[in-house]
Structures are given as C-alpha cells and as structure tokens.
Amino acid sequence: MEEDRRRLLAITIALMAGLGIAASAIPFLASWQPSAETLAQATSPVEVDLSNLAPGGSMLVSWQNKPIWIIRRTQAMLDNLPSIDPLLRDPYSLVEQQPSYTRNEYRSLNPEYLILIGLCTHLGCSPQFKPSLGELNHKWPGGFYCPCHGSMFDLAGRVMKGMPAPTNLRIPPYHFIDAHTLVIGEDPRLV
C-alpha cells in the first residue's frame, strides 16, 4: 500500500513539474513571434506616384520590407494573356494568392497596372522582369523568371506548369486614390 502511494505521489509530482517546465517555455518561444512594432509596420500602407511610369515600364517599391512590383502593361501584353492559359497551372487564380477584387483575368483592379509581391512562391527569391516576347526561350510570352530555382511566371504573375513554384505570385491589398496615385497595403474603401 505504502509503495503504491509513494509511486502515485512521485508520478504526480513528475507530471506537475513537467507541466510547469513546459509552461515556462511559453515566454521564451512566444517572444519569437513578430513584435507589436513589426505588426504595426506591416499594416502601414505606402503611397506611390505613378505619373512617371511609362507603358511597358516597371517600378520597384518596398512595402513590409518586401519588393513590390508595379508593371504598367501595354495593350499588346494584355491581349496576349488569354492565349497563355494552357501553359499555366492556375490560369483563373483559384488559389487564394490575391485579394478577391483582383481575382480576374488580368489579376488587377485596373488592367493596365499589375501590382505584385515580388517574391517567388517557391523559396522566396525575387524573380527578374523579362517582359519581351522570346526573351528567355522562343516560346517565352513575357513575364518573370526566378534565378534561384528557375520558376517562370507570366505578365499577370501566374505560374507556368512544371515549375518548382506551386502557386501564382501573391498580390498585396491596394487601391487607387486617383488615376496616378496608388496605395499599397490597404483595400479599396467601400463606397
């Protein structure tokens, strides 16, 4: 009897001590979460003036420390997009990599402007802008090429089939204040 009681007590103490030690690990582990300051930076929007961006040109801005690309697509580029659909893994952007208001054929609010987070969905390198037809190979429709592991994306940031990258490039929340002023990091205000 005495033996059993001692065993029970020993096990209880060991369990409670184990729980206590596990609980004391929480502050150490939780401190690695993004700090309040980091989170605040992540929600602060960035305003961009687009008046100097020529058709066919691109801009690189930083938001949340990430590269954000702004591409002003020409009519020819836009017209070419539907013909690429068979080469793509997710041509209709079914995977949620974009705000709902950019889930369309051009993956943008205003078809002319493409706004993307410039980080490959494979392992996070920043791909290169290769807009011209045939720039990479004779079938190249124009788009983005990742130097790290070779993933390719079209001019709407949609991933091509057979690439290491699993999904289309992500699109940040954004809206336009006027024809030439873009705000990145904020959804359009409901009217």
Binding site: W32, Q33, P34, S35, T38, A42, Q64, N65, K66, L119
Partner: peptide
C-alpha cells in the same frame, strides 16, 4: 516560418536572434 523570422521576410529580427 514567420515565427523563426519574427517577421514575414528575413529582416532585423532574425539577424538579431
């Protein structure tokens, strides 16, 4: 990944830790 980086991308937080 976010926990290890302390941010959504590699930045000052991960450098420090």
């Amino acid at each position: 990944t976010t926990w290890v980086r302390g941010n959504s991308v590699v930045s000052g937080e991960i450098l420090h830790r």
